[in-house]
């Protein structure tokens, strides 16, 4: 079965399977993180200058503990087909299971530019205002129209002494927002890297002095980053290209790392992301087999009722027109051949003396004849006429 086409071969929206992007990524195992103070923890905002790579946590005595890794790092030594393509990964959820008691404040960040800038996805704390300058998340989601990083309750301790941090992208999205139709939500779920910032240990009491002075460590056993290769609904799987980058196995006449554009000849209508209802496949231009290139014309597309905007370029085989659907001047349609036939257009072959010109009727092939001349190519005298010696009046009335 082809996930991108139905039984009848019609295109339909398709997405790669849900995978754990953290699976197989190289890590340092359990990291021992020095305790962090309270200072500087309100700095989170768009592109707040957080480091591109996780700092050396063993030396980061006064920095928050940071766990970061790339979902789409081309330099990663593994070539894991589950890791994300360069252009991004569509997040569904993130979960982090602790062996130790979980931190009471956690910030979850994402990058869309391979770690150059970071934006928050969510915060987890019992002290949202103090730690992150935010109010606790409303029970019914964001108050605004779009998704936003909310502050949720701190990670819950488990009976075995560990803890679990769980985040779904839906947690920060207003109810009813649809991924297919919301570019804002599509942007919200797209990430190339994830960073988890752990702050304020729980087990050392609440005094700042104690946290500042006493080393502390967390340990985590399992990180899951659930999501999909970002292919805009036009691929059901991702592959490795020759440079080792993940790219979508694009269908529906699309191409690009994330199937984000139409293939060169598939420009009869504008590119669109596929939805669950409509595949929005890129359509090949209709050139009757006489052209290899075409371009999109928005004006024609609008005039056609948003059906077709492709214009064929360099029509061959003596054809012409937007769809190479009629014959060039000096040629006419051979009714015995299909329009797609290489010889569908025949030369007029007008007689050099009997015809008044070289261009024939493009449908019938009839050349314009001089007086007294007849025939498709004007090569005979009409009944009642006979050939003269004058090339200007080749047929004259019979005496």
């Amino acid at each position: 079965a082809d996930p991108c086409h139905d039984e009848g071969g019609a295109p339909r929206g398709c997405v790669p399977g849900l995978v754990n992007a953290a699976l197989g990524r190289e890590g340092a195992g359990v990291q021992h993180v020095r305790a962090a103070g309270h200072a500087g923890l309100r700095r989170f905002g768009p592109a707040a200058g957080t480091p591109r790579r996780p700092p050396d946590l063993r030396r980061g005595h006064h920095k928050p503990g940071v766990l970061a890794f790339g979902l789409a790092d081309a330099s990663a030594p593994q070539r894991d087909p589950h890791s994300a393509p360069r252009q991004g990964f569509e997040l569904v959820f993130v979960s982090l299971r602790f062996c130790s008691a979980p931190p009471t404040s956690v910030a979850l960040l994402k990058s869309q530019d391979h770690g150059r800038s970071w934006t928050p996805l969510g915060f987890f704390s019992s002290r949202c205002g103090l730690d992150y300058g935010r109010v606790p998340a409303p029970a019914d989601g964001p108050a605004g129209l779009g998704p936003e990083a909310l502050c949720f309750p701190e990670p819950q301790a488990q009976p075995d002494g560990g803890g679990l941090l769980a985040f779904s992208v839906q947690d920060g999205s207003p109810p009813g927002l649809d991924l297919d139709s919301s570019p804002v939500l599509q942007d919200w779920v797209t990430a190339t890297d994830i960073q988890v910032v752990l702050t304020r240990p729980t087990m050392l009491g609440d005094t700042r002095d104690a946290m500042a002075m006493v080393p502390y460590s967390y340990s985590a056993t399992e990180l899951q980053v659930g999501g999909r290769c970002k292919c805009n609904g036009h691929a059901a799987r991702c592959l490795l290209d020759s440079q080792g980058h993940m790219i979508c196995d694009c269908r529906h006449g699309t191409e690009g790392p994330d199937c984000g554009r139409c293939k060169p000849f598939y420009c009869d209508r504008p590119w669109q992301r596929a939805t669950a209802r409509e595949a929005h496949a890129c359509l090949a231009c209709s050139c009757n087999g006489h052209a290899r290139r075409c371009r999109f014309n928005m004006e024609l597309y609008r005039l056609s009722g948003r059906r077709s905007g492709g214009v064929c370029l360099n029509c061959r085989h003596n054809t012409a027109g937007r769809h190479c659907h009629y014959c060039q001047e000096g040629f006419y349609r051979d009714p015995g051949r299909a329009l797609s036939d290489r010889r569908a257009c025949r030369a007029c072959d007008c007689h050099p003396v009997g015809a008044a010109g070289k261009t024939c009727n493009q449908t019938t092939g009839q050349c314009p004849c001089k007086d007294g001349v007849t025939g498709l190519t004007c090569n005979r005298c009409a009944p009642g006429f006979q050939q003269s010696r004058s090339p200007v009046a080749p047929c004259v009335k019979t005496p």
Binding site: V353, R380, Q387, S390, P391
Partner: peptide, 23 residues
């Protein structure tokens, strides 16, 4: 009645040399 095709050899191109088609 099917008339014969025009015979190019019968034309006199003396005054119309510039119109004479290349053969």
């Amino acid at each position: 009645e099917v008339m014969p095709t025009l015979d190019m050899a019968l034309f006199d191109w003396t005054d119309y040399e510039d119109l004479k088609p290349e053969v």
